[in-house]
Design a protein around this nucleic acid. Structure first.
Lengths: 173, 173
DNA sequence: TATAACATGTAACAAGTTACATGATTTC
DNA sequence: GAAATCATGTAACTTGTTACATGTTATA
């Protein structure tokens, strides 16, 4: 919730936009960073407007559907700073998918468990490949920051998984 | 959802239990691995029972509130294997808190941004300390597997953050 | 005498998703 | 003539949380 609001306010801080435009941008450029859906974005924009964090002006280019162009207000900027500050300074606990399964690893025959983990390793490698091939945006691009971070985490998850598979392979055949 | 079901079925596969018992166990031993709340566990147990994945038998020790002791059924075991298999073999995308903030890092004065990142680094170190001090459970404990994994991820996040702070410190004073 | 432990649950709310509705215009 | 693009939204649903209700017994 807070992160979604930070995202919308941030995008509107860069430039005033209408909802469709924002949704396009998110879908095309930020799909790896956020999973916010269109309906959620529209609804959140409405709420932000009601609460005075953004203002609206309706535009109509002839023969095109009318658009609601949103701009960030001063109140919205305040909110933005506040959310940005806590987003940067807090760690916020990440919930790791897969952990529950690992807990019950020993309920499976040894070889079967290992085969699943090897399949997972392959998929992890693919994801790493994917992120490694994202073009570099620039020497100070903030997008690169998040791509870099995710790549590092994926790599260390791969390393851990490789070692774990090796270690488990040593116990009984 | 799926992970919560896997957890409940897995715990009941180890031994039949009543809801209170399960909730106690989760709160005391699994608080770092899952964040499922009591109400959710009770509701999910009811649904699992309705759907035939677990069976109930009501117990009453005198002067104690009646308990509903759940046991996993054969159908439940099938579901368990299936969920376990996909949990182990799939990567499941992890959503990283903090990424949105990083995107807008350049909207803050250089020094201010750095000070927030340094504060975040301190908190990360604390978390790492915490996980590093969790006692070792045994040479094949599946709990250790998840603690290990999380520790590794936290450490690589810390390394990335350290390098990022260093790198950012080099651009303009 | 209050409060913690035991044991289960419900009602109200919050956040988000899916799938659809609308209606014009441009492209295949 | 069908489908995609543009642009916004709503209704139904899912998942989960918070806070409370209930009632007994052991403990401080």
């Amino acid at each position: 919730m807070e992160e979604r609001i930070l995202l919308l306010l941030g995008l509107l801080k860069v430039q005033s936009q209408h909802g469709y435009q924002i949704n396009e941008f998110i879908e095309r450029n930020l799909s790896r960073i956020t999973d916010m859906k269109k309906a959620t974005a529209y609804a959140t924009l409405n709420r932000l407007h009601q609460d005075g964090y953004i203002s609206v002006r309706t535009e109509q280019e002839e023969n095109r559907p009318p658009r609601k162009v949103y701009s960030i207000t001063e109140k919205g900027e305040m909110r933005f700073w506040e959310l940005l500050r806590t987003s940067l300074a807090e760690v916020g606990q990440m919930t790791l998918p897969g952990d529950i399964g690992l807990m019950f690893l020993d309920h499976l025959p040894h070889e079967e468990a290992l085969s699943y983990l090897r399949a997972r390793l392959l998929k992890l490698e693919e994801q790493i490949e994917m992120y490694a091939n994202i073009p570099y945006h620039g020497p100070q691009s903030s997008i690169d920051l998040t791509v870099d971070r995710r790549l590092r985490l994926l790599q260390s998850d791969r390393d851990w998984l490789t070692e774990t598979i090796d270690r488990l392979s040593q116990f009984e055949t």
